[in-house]
Amino acid sequence: MDDAIAIEGVRKVFGDFVAVENLSLRVPAGKLCGFIGPNGSGKTTTLRLIMRIYAPDAGTVRVLGDSRHGPADDRVGYLPEERMLYKSMRVGEVLTYLSRLKGYKPNRIEIDQWLERLALPGVARRRVQTLSKGQTQKIQLIAVLIAKPKLVLLDEPFSGLDPVNSNVMRDAILELKNNGTTVLFSTHDMASAEELCDRIVMIYKGNKVMDGTINEIRAGHNTDTLRVRLANLASNFDNLPGVACAIAEGDHHELQLTPTADAQAILRELQQRGPVELFEIARPSLHDLFVRTVHEGAA
């Protein structure tokens, strides 16, 4: 399968600040890829490089088979992180305008259909300034999608959305994937990334530190955590062999294991201390991996 995005050895510097360093990543066509990393790690710069807003200082950026730097590619839709619309324009006008900038002229029916689909019926004649923040964000998403892009870049699409609108956004992203559109979205919402994405790429301080499917990423990390709940909640986990620390997590505890720990030996030991209601050898979540990676990088 062709790669929708192929970045090779890219470097981008602003003055003395290295935003992206020797970054290489591939996003296969038709896949939904999550782009994670702490604030200031270079995600937005990378998305702008893909959008050709910035030119790389070194390396190549190939998008939908085209590695030229110059005019924006009409086949690529982009939803920036910080986004607003012309407040005094009507919704229908702004959607038509932004679509035409992508070389597409939607008709009125099409606009109304999109508005219906994103639970915004009848707002085409309303001025943008009369909409709520969530409504405005959905209009922005429509502005990206209405021109039928082959590749969609979304920078923090869930930020600022309430749970209902988050679900609408999630459904729209999944629909894109089902239609064969390649999607790359940056997010701090690890649960959404884990739930939606075929692949995850994480960058930290301008460098790629994680790349693969969720399973590939997890497989690369030891199952070094146990989820345990004892009938006697007050039980202490002191002096358990192979347990580095125990952290209370609501109705259960998470036990961090040492590299040589024997899970079965720990289970036997726990059963001697009382009835065991939950014993699960847990794989680290994306959230765990994210936090660990950042802590390791900081150390």
Binding site: R48, I53, V76, E82, M84, L85
Partner: peptide, 9 residues
């Protein structure tokens, strides 16, 4: 912040 939307097109 409309600028980035525009230069994306």
């Amino acid at each position: 912040r409309i600028a980035e939307v525009l230069v994306g097109s």
